[in-house]
Amino acid sequence: MSGAEWQLVGFSLRMALASLLLILPTGLALAWWLARTNWPGKALVETLVSLPLVLPPVVTGLLLLQLFGRRGPVGSWLHNTFNCDVVFTWRAVVIALAAMSLPLFVRAARTAFEEVDVKFEQLARTLGAGEWRVFFTITLPLAKRGVLAGTLLAFARALGEFGATIMVAGNIPGRTTTLPVAIYQAVENGEDAHAWTLASVSAVIAFAAVFVSERLQRQRK
């Protein structure tokens, strides 16, 4: 692999990791909220969270582009307030990856939370633990494997994201080009050897992530 190829892999890994920083707090809160509480309209939120899984990724990309574009509601605010542009920058990559991978994480974490016996949580409460303490000392540790498996799945999904990324972040070599986008471009340019090298790297990373994730979910049972 050439220096540029290593750089590309490094960039993609960093972007996927950065998206996890967005996914973990949001996803944990959502998963807990869906697993432990009941309220009218919950089904609607459940559906919305899972939507990016089945919606064509370019549609998610289109929505993000509308939101974060320089003339979109969020984008124009960021531009005018912080002079910070999202579209066609690395920030757009992270947001696209996070939006696309969040559902996978929420689904895994939610199942994991639901499998934790609420009796343990109630016991902790009777001993005087507050809700945050219950979550961090009882629920999360007991759901650890499922949450970890979900994290790995989300990470792997983020590394493979194409459709939404190319819509909002484009394909700027060295700045927004991720592995899948680079593979597409290499094929377009007729650089098949380059495409195969990058494809092999993707396959190895994806294999490892799914393999470990599966093992974690098996062991839990």
């Binding site: 582009l65 574009g69 320089r70 003339r71 066609f88 484009g170 394909n171 700027i172 070599p173």
Partner: peptide, 20 residues
């Protein structure tokens, strides 16, 4: 500063949107 686009029409759309 270059944002490479898929085709000349993608360039046009990017300028139309004001994102470039």
């Amino acid at each position: 500063k270059v944002v490479p686009c898929e085709s000349v029409r993608t360039v046009l759309a990017a300028v139309e949107s004001g994102n470039v």
